[in-house]
Design a protein around this nucleic acid. Structure first.
Lengths: 212, 212
DNA sequence: GTCTATACGCGGATAGAC
DNA sequence: GTCTATCCGCGTATAGAC
């Protein structure tokens, strides 16, 4: 069998299968041979659809970002929109945690990332923010969401109590963070998010007063 | 030459050389063979000092985090300390941008990261924050600093104006972000940092009033 | 135009000689 | 504690079958 009557592969099948492998076994598990095996094909066949493995990963990342809802910017006032968008953005990362290291590693020049930046920036400027502020607010939000999606804070603390004795006097209870992982990480995200949005609301009043 | 009179390698020499290679040529350029060549040794010799390549990278990361100044927590009130610590933390990342993707990728269980968490958490609790809040504030700060160190926001936007025409109506000027890279990224960091710290100060007053 | 077969030069890591 | 020799898997280039 050399040339099948109808193509056996497609960009979409490759992207979906790659996402599934990464979700199930991690970024490191995705090799071209492994992906090809999953698709019942030989590794070089993939190169008919993508020039490099990195292009495949780019497409995986783009598909994830493309799924982030942006409709709140057409509907809600900017502080509420920013808040619910940040949650949606973080949720998209959280649905594919193994892809996150790749997603945040390069600059976000993929189409879906630009579409997202366009929506956020546009909504802020339409709301009356000066362009420079809108840019910095968009950047700040990306920093915060990417950082919170990247690594669990709670998982950074081993659950062996003996490890902290003496060495880290204030971390005597840190071994319990792992069991409260979700509460800690979600709580930190919500705390940071409300601090940021509240901070921007205050700034907005100052900027508006200065301008108008 | 089989066994030299005195060891030719040491953990420290390996870590320093690895850091230099990564700083100069990127994370991907660091292979065990490349590192060994730099040290005028064969690759397997490294395994006398580190069990895996990942252990070498862990040591590189730990050395960087260990360099972050923490003395402000003994000196300044917590809002000022948090602010200058965040800047020092980000500066340590910025001094070795090529290591950042590795640094943020795993949970921060390295000794220097725990020492840092101990200092931040301890200072907040000593200042009167309830433990749960201190934990979430520490996590929020780590999210924000890691996110801002990871990738330049400005570099995510290609500098070809034609790319934005029609497709991204609000990003007509985005092609200029690259040239203002430092201003944009630093400005976003400072904006986010002050919003966060101001938000925490407000919260502190509420929490204190509720408790006292 | 889509696949298979094969091959090259890398990578991390191990075994055993000195 | 360093060497040499070696293993296996990786990304991917190329040639050719249909």
């Amino acid at each position: 069998m050399a040339r099948p009557a109808r193509p056996v592969l497609s960009r979409q099948r490759i992207v979906e299968t790659a996402t599934a492998v990464i979700d199930a076994e991690g970024l490191a598990a995705l090799s071209t041979r492994r992906l090809a095996r999953e698709l019942r094909v030989q590794a070089p066949s993939l190169y008919n659809y993508f020039a490099t493995k990195e292009e495949i990963l780019d497409a995986v990342g783009d598909a994830i970002i493309a799924g982030v809802d942006l409709s709140m910017f057409d509907r809600d006032p900017w502080p509420a929109a920013l808040t619910s968008w940040a949650r949606a953005y973080r949720a998209a990362f959280a649905a594919h945690p193994n892809v996150v290291p790749f997603l945040v590693h390069g600059p976000g020049r993929r189409p879906a990332a630009l579409r997202l930046a366009d929506a956020v920036y546009g909504a802020l400027v339409d709301a009356g923010w000066p362009p420079g502020h809108a840019t910095r607010i968009g950047a700040t939000m990306r920093y915060f969401v990417a950082g919170s999606a990247l690594g669990s804070f709670a998982l950074g603390f081993p659950d062996d109590p003996a490890l902290y004795d003496g060495r880290y006097p204030h971390l005597a209870d840190a071994h319990r963070l792992r069991e409260h992982r979700v509460q800690v990480d979600d709580g930190a995200f919500e705390l940071g998010l409300s601090a940021l949005v509240n901070g921007f609301v205050t700034l907005y009043q100052e900027v508006s007063a200065g301008t108008g």
